[in-house]
Design a protein around this nucleic acid. Structure first.
Lengths: 201, 201
DNA sequence: CCAATAAGCTACGCCTATTAGCCAAAAAGT
DNA sequence: ACTTTTTGGCTAATAGGCGTAGCTTATTGG
């Protein structure tokens, strides 16, 4: 009957539009990601998206994988050629920088993959890559093998916690937040060094 | 027509049932909190809840305030009579302990209040109390006035980040998570002490 | 005993996601 | 070039969520 021009969508295009929704929604962009919103951007009826994406959950997972990959890439790029304290500092700042520039995507990156579901394989890989960057950063500290995991967990915890609280408006005091972040990173670097000195073998 | 017995609800009762939903839902209990679920627990039709609660958003906020208050209470109780490193350690462990016992409520506690909305006053108060506990914990470190906020932010960031990642399944390696937490707390204590030593005045 | 209030209910409107089935447009095959 | 198949739109319809309106009954207070 009525001619229906093609919108030229594809899985890639849909994910891209979803990323746009996430970006425009600020910190809550990922939580507010909806098929209806994506369809509106595409100029298409909501059910049409199912030709390119299995479900909202699948689209969200795809967005998460992208976000985790980007975060891993940003920290990785920031630390090439560095080691020891310099590497940790660079990683921490790159991490926080990514979160501040892309708060919606950072929130998306916090969805953990299901360890068992085979559909989450890409997500697991991306997460593993992100952790691998952190591990690589700690080379140069001469950490005893069994302490590396403690150090990685400490760095991830501290930086992620800081960024989360900052984006969530948790730091209401007037003091400079950058300064506090530097202090935190200093603590981490000193703490890792101390961890290396302890239990010397 | 048909006799409609009273369910004996009240605002208190509704909030209590909501807390039950949150508790039973694990980490995602707060995200999955829904008026329909609460109504089902109350044995009541969903719209009936509006006689006791203004909206889902209001109910969620109420739950958040409770959770923040409980967390502040738990950390406060754990640190009475302690100071310095002992206080920080006790607070960190009480914090993590609360989150592990009440993962749903802990997630609820992460919703930040709107600084302007007068309806969020109770939420702001609860959050302020929680921060006050952390500040009190740092007495005994002789921190220069302008460094206290850095130390508070560092402690909150590190502990919150660790707990968040732990609950979210972010620590997949087989190594003991308790040990990693102890290492993190050691770093914090040492870092705060170093902060006190720096810029001596 | 009666009136006022409080606490249920059903019916509805609007927004999601998702499925089913139709139809035209593009692509592939002959 | 024509035909066939696949693809990517569509509308219609189901199910479940929040929230509003208006009715009815239980409870309470005079």
């Amino acid at each position: 009957m009525t001619p229906v021009p093609r919108a030229g969508l594809s899985r890639e295009a849909v994910v891209g539009l979803a990323l746009g929704v996430v970006d425009d929604g600020g910190t809550g962009g990922f939580a507010d990601l909806t098929l209806a919103r994506v369809a509106a951007r595409a100029g298409v009826a909501t059910p049409s998206l199912y030709k390119h994406v299995g479900s909202l959950a699948e689209l969200r997972r795809e967005v998460s994988v992208r976000a985790v990959g980007e975060l891993a890439g940003a920290t990785s790029r920031a630390t090439v050629g560095l080691s020891g304290p310099d590497a940790v500092r660079a990683m921490a700042h790159a991490w926080r920088g990514y979160a501040r520039v892309h708060p919606g995507r950072y929130a998306a990156a916090q969805t953990g993959p299901d360890p068992d579901d085979p559909a989450h394989a890409a997500h697991r890989d991306a997460a593993a890559e992100s952790v691998a960057v952190a591990v690589a950063t700690l080379r140069g500290f001469d950490l005893p093998e069994e302490c590396v995991v403690d150090a990685v967990r400490a760095v991830r915890s501290a930086v992620h916690g800081f960024v989360t609280l900052e984006l969530g408006g948790g730091f209401r005091a007037p003091q400079d937040v950058d300064r506090s972040f530097d202090a935190l990173v200093d603590m981490l670097v000193a703490g890792i060094a101390a961890l290396a000195r302890r239990e010397p073998g």
